[in-house]
Design a protein around this nucleic acid. Structure first.
Length: 273
DNA sequence: AACAAGACCTGCATGC
DNA sequence: TGCATGCAGGTCTTGT
């Protein structure tokens, strides 16, 4: 489900609810999601005080008072919901936390591509899933020069390169199509040809689209829902994703759908070169 | 080393 | 109605 804007939306909703709160009870109904969960995850969490949740790429990180950090990834279909009292649990509610405030945080994930882990907060190197991540696209370190240097020499299509989390960490399939549309770049263009003004336009588009989508609460198509039950409103701002055959908002030509590295790409063959 | 395809899993829409 | 097929917002692993 979630790309950076959806995960940031979840993180922000979690913040006022869990910051400073102590975990009173954990309901764990599976021993594995994508991978086996840490042993005694439930017991290790009870009694811990949570700090404000942080985000790195599509991961949510919660530092605990025992110097461990809870890592959460929502995979494709994961969602977190908040309740003011004990909810009626559904089929795929695999992991739920009751806080001392009486509020409940429920993690549900039908496809189970998501993941939970616990690791020492001060671990160096850090968690292996985090250590391979590339630059955070909304940070000041991500500039057109950095983008150019990351893409230099790459023969893979720019679409595929932007999905590679080791280069830029946080974009997913929806927003890659959108940022390429906004910067007028074809998803088929070789990544290594991104430089100069093209790199400037693409960098600006990445920052703008991710920021706007975050402000809108993300994109709700199938699975994404904000923790409070609200949908995200960026779907109405999508120019190309899922718009195959529809007229381009710029030129009116039909939006095209192709498969690259096994994943859908949408673009305007006239506006994007 | 870089890249593409395969794998993981469930649910839903579509078409026969 | 039932069944097969294909597709879905991710990413690690395997194979070329």
């Amino acid at each position: 489900m979630p790309e950076l804007p959806e995960v940031e939306t979840v993180r922000a909703a979690l913040e006022p609810v869990i910051s400073g709160q102590v975990i009173a009870f954990v309901r764990l109904t599976r021993a594995d999601l994508r991978w086996p969960l840490p042993e005694y995850l439930d017991k290790r969490l009870v009694g811990q005080r949570c700090s404000a949740p942080k985000r790195r790429s599509k991961y949510i990180l919660i530092d605990l008072s025992n110097q461990e950090t809870l890592l959460i990834h929502l995979g494709m279909s994961g969602a977190i919901r908040l309740y003011n009292q004990k909810p009626n649990f559904a089929k795929h509610d695999h992991f739920s936390v009751e806080l001392e405030s009486g509020q409940w945080v429920v993690f549900s994930d039908p496809r189970r591509f998501g993941h939970l882990d616990l690791f020492a907060s001060a671990a160096t190197p850090t968690h292996p899933l985090l250590s391979v991540l590339g630059v955070e696209p909304l940070s000041d370190e991500f500039t057109d020069r950095e983008l150019t240097s990351l893409m230099r020499g790459r023969k893979t299509p720019i679409k595929s390169a932007l999905l590679d989390q080791r280069l830029i960490a946080g974009l997913g399939n929806i927003y890659v199509s959108e940022v390429l549309f906004r910067s007028g770049i074809s998803p088929r263009r070789k990544a290594g040809t991104i430089a100069g003004q093209r790199a400037v336009r693409l960098t600006e588009a990445i920052k703008a689209v991710l920021s706007e989508a975050t402000s809108a609460g993300g994109t709700s198509l199938r699975d994404h829902i904000q923790p409070g039950g609200e949908i995200g409103y960026f779907a109405q701002n999508l120019c190309v994703y899922g718009q195959a055959g529809q007229p381009c908002v710029n030129c009116g030509l039909a939006i095209k759908h192709i498969i690259q590295s096994g994943r859908s790409s949408f673009y305007c063959p006239s506006c994007q070169r």
